[in-house]
């Protein structure tokens, strides 16, 4: 196990699009161990994407289980993840290990459905919401070369509209 160096914006590599993982081998699993260790070493880090350490493959790790009182799936290894459904909108505050000393408000889907492979290539699907769904969307953006800075909304944007949005959505 080894900590890896996190790329920090304005490193142009953070804007690179990552390639799908083709081979599910020991090299991949060993890299995932290092990636997870690097994520857990970051201050408050609940997610990481492979391109953040300079490996441009579609690998994301999310674990929001340290946060109290939220729904979650524990430790998630998401390889070649695809969001298959988006529901509702929510504004929330995000920061990023690749963008130190700045946080900003970002609109994300309140709930998502997700298909991904695990570190053995096994297909899995998830339904998730709230903080965990936000973390997954943030990390998956890295795979497209997007940072939360690409999605900032005004600080004035209402952080309290989530429930209103939900209500509006449920009428459909």
């Amino acid at each position: 196990m080894a900590l890896m160096e996190i790329l920090v914006y304005p490193d142009p590599r953070l804007k690179q699009i990552s390639e799908p993982v083709e081979e599910f081998n020991d090299d991949l699993r060993s890299f995932i161990e290092d990636l997870e260790e690097t994520m857990r070493n970051g201050p408050g880090g609940v997610g990481i994407a492979s391109p953040q350490v300079g490996r441009f493959e579609r690998i994301v790790i999310v674990d929001v289980s340290s946060k109290p009182k939220i729904k979650h799936h524990g430790r998630l290894i998401l390889i070649n993840p695809e969001i298959t459904a988006y529901n509702g909108f929510a504004v929330g505050r995000e920061g990023c290990m690749s963008v130190p000393d700045y946080t900003g408000n970002v609109v994300r889907a309140e709930a998502i459905e997700l298909a991904a492979q695990d570190e053995y290539g096994q297909e899995q699907t998830f339904e998730m919401e709230g903080y965990e769904a936000r973390a997954v969307q943030h990390e998956m953006d890295h795979l497209e070369g997007l940072l939360f800075l690409d999605r900032l909304v005004s600080r004035r944007t209402d952080l309290f509209q989530r429930k209103a949005y939900k209500k509006a959505g449920s009428k459909k």
Binding site: P43, G92, R93, E94, Y131, A135, H138, L159
Partner: peptide, 11 residues
């Protein structure tokens, strides 16, 4: 009045 926590998602 409304108050809500700001819980920063650090990814």
């Amino acid at each position: 009045t409304r108050i809500s926590p700001i819980d920063v998602m650090m990814g």
